[in-house]
Design a protein around this nucleic acid. Structure first.
Length: 419
DNA sequence: TCTGGGGTCCTAGGACCC
DNA sequence: TCTGGGGTCCTAGGACCC
C-alpha cells in the first residue's frame, strides 16, 4: 500500500503558523516579483481566485474582499517543509519526498486493517508538531493514493485521511473523478481524452491499453495501469541526484545593458553551482538562455540559448561563471530588451566517479578548497556574504512587497519581531 | 506598469558509426 | 550501373509534475 501526504495550501499554511490572525481569512501567496497567485487558502479559492492568475488583473478584487497577500518566502517554506518531512520520517516505514509539500509513504509493513486509523493519526501528529494541516490518501498505487488524498482534502469528515481499498469503492470514486484531475494527465491529454468521450478516471481505465499507448506513450500507459491497481511507478526512498540544475528569474524591469545581464547570469550560475556542490556533483556543460518580454507584442521578440561544454567536469563557481559569460556574449544582441535569463547545469555526475582531464588542469584541488571556504562563509553569515566580482555588488532585485519574516531561520528577523 | 520557477521523462529525427 | 542494414547518440520539442 502507498500513502500520499499533501500539505493543504502549503505556503498559506506556513504564513498562518506564525500569524494566527490569518486563520479563516482569505489569504494568497504570490510568485517571484509578486507576479502570479501560487497558493490560496480555502477561503480564497471559494472567492474564485485561480491558481496562476496574474495579480495585477485582480488588484481591485483583492482590495474589495480583504484578501491578505504575501510575497513568497521560500526560506520559511523550505524550513517548514523540512519539519514536516522529519515528522513523517519518524512515523512512517519509509518516505519519498516528492515536492516541497508532498511525500509518498511505503506502507507495506503496516496491517491493512489499521491503515485508516494510521492515516488519521499521522495527519494529527503532523499538525501538532508543525502546525501544518495535511491530507493523506492511502491505496494500492501512487496514482490511486493521489486520488484518495484529494478526497481527504475535499471531505472534512474524513479527518484528513482517505483509505481506498475495496475495488467497488475505488470504482465508485473513479466514476465521478474527472480524468483531467488524475495525476499524470495534464491539460493537453485531458482535452484529447474528453474529445474522445473519455470524461472520468473510470472511462480512462476502461480504454484499451493499445489505444492509450498509441495516444499517450508509455507514460500514459503507466497511469492507466496504476488506476487499475497495478503499481507501475516506482517508489524511490533514496535521495536522488538531480540531472539538471536550473536557476532562472524574470527581472522586475527589462534589461538591455550587457553588464547588468552579465551580473544576473553570474548570480544564477553561482546559485546553481551551490546546489551542484550540495549534492556532491560536477557538471560538464552549462546552458545559458535569455529572452525578451513575450507579453509585449509590440517589441521584437528574441529567445536564444547556448550550451557551453567544459574541458573537464567541475563544480567550481569560478570556472562555471567564466563559461556562462562566454556563452552569454555569443547570444547577446544589443538591440533587445531582456525580461528573463537563466542558466542550466547539464551532464551532471557524482564528483568521485568523474575522471579528470590530464590535458587541462584547473588546479582542481585549489578550486575545491576555495569553494569549501566560500560555501562555509555563506552558510554561516548568509547567502551572498562572499560573491564573485562578476556578480556585482548591487544584484538585480525582484519585487517582493509583501514579504513575511523568516521566522524559523533568521535571527535578525526575530529581533525585529520582538521590538 | 504589473504575467513564476524548477524539475522529469519520452519521442522523433538527424548525424554518425561500422 | 549497381548504393544496405543495424545500431547509438544527441538534440529539440512536447508533455507532465509541483
Amino acid at each position: 500500500m502507498f500513502g500520499l501526504v499533501d500539505c493543504n495550501s502549503f505556503f498559506v499554511s506556513c504564513e498562518r503558523v506564525f500569524n494566527p490572525a490569518l486563520h479563516n481569512k482569505p489569504v494568497i501567496v504570490l510568485s517571484n516579483n509578486d507576479g502570479c497567485v501560487i497558493s490560496r487558502s480555502k477561503e480564497a479559492i471559494s472567492l474564485g481566485i485561480k491558481m496562476g492568475q496574474p495579480v495585477f488583473k485582480i488588484m481591485d478584487f483583492i482590495r474589495e474582499n480583504g484578501i491578505q497577500v504575501f510575497s513568497s518566502n521560500y526560506i520559511l517554506y523550505g524550513d517548514m517543509s523540512d519539519r514536516v518531512m522529519e515528522t513523517l520520517r519518524a512515523c512512517a516505514p519509509s518516505i519519498e519526498i516528492y515536492s516541497i509539500d508532498e511525500a509518498f509513504l511505503n506502507l507495506d509493513s503496516i496491517d491493512n486493517s489499521n491503515l485508516k486509523k494510521y492515516g488519521e493519526e499521522l495527519a494529527s501528529i503532523v499538525k501538532r508538531n508543525t502546525g501544518i494541516p495535511v491530507s493523506i490518501g492511502i491505496s494500492h498505487t501512487k496514482t490511486l493514493a493521489k486520488v484518495a488524498s484529494k478526497l481527504g482534502k475535499k471531505y472534512p469528515k474524513l479527518n484528513g485521511s482517505c483509505f481506498m481499498q475495496e475495488d467497488c469503492d475505488i470504482r465508485k470514486v473513479l466514476k465521478v473523478f474527472p480524468v483531467g484531475d488524475v495525476w499524470g494527465i495534464g491539460r493537453e491529454h485531458g482535452k484529447m481524452l474528453n474529445q474522445n468521450k473519455i470524461m472520468t478516471a473510470y472511462d480512462f481505465s476502461m480504454a484499451s491499453s493499445e489505444w492509450v499507448k498509441k495516444k499517450m506513450s508509455v507514460v500514459g500507459l503507466r497511469t492507466w495501469l496504476e488506476l487499475r491497481g497495478i503499481p507501475s511507478i516506482s517508489f524511490e526512498d533514496s535521495i536522488h541526484i538531480k540531472k539538471q540544475i536550473c536557476t532562472s528569474r524574470s527581472f522586475s524591469h527589462e534589461l538591455n545593458d550587457i553588464e547588468e545581464l552579465s551580473q544576473a547570469v553570474a548570480t544564477f550560475t553561482t546559485y546553481s553551482a551551490e546546489k551542484l556542490r550540495k549534492q556532491d556533483s560536477v557538471c560538464s556543460s552549462i546552458q545559458i538562455f535569455i529572452l525578451t518580454n513575450q507579453y509585449k507584442e509590440k517589441i521584437s521578440q528574441y529567445f536564444r540559448s547556448i550550451i557551453v561544454t567544459l574541458d573537464t567536469p567541475t563544480d567550481s563557481t569560478l570556472i562555471l561563471v567564466k563559461a556562462a559569460l562566454s556563452g552569454l556574449c555569443k547570444i547577446y544582441k544589443s538591440e533587445c530588451m531582456y525580461k528573463k535569463a537563466g542558466v542550466v547545469l547539464l551532464d551532471i555526475s557524482k564528483k568521485n566517479d568523474t575522471p579528470g582531464n590530464i590535458f587541462c588542469d584547473h588546479n582542481a584541488a585549489k578550486h575545491s578548497m576555495l569553494m569549501e571556504t566560500l560555501d562555509g562563509l555563506n552558510l554561516r553569515y548568509g547567502r551572498d556574504t562572499l560573491v564573485t566580482a562578476a556578480q556585482g555588488i548591487e544584484s538585480i532585485k525582484a519585487f517582493s512587497n509583501h514579504l513575511s519574516k523568516r521566522y524559523t531561520t533568521c535571527w535578525d528577523d526575530i529581533i525585529e519581531v520582538n521590538i
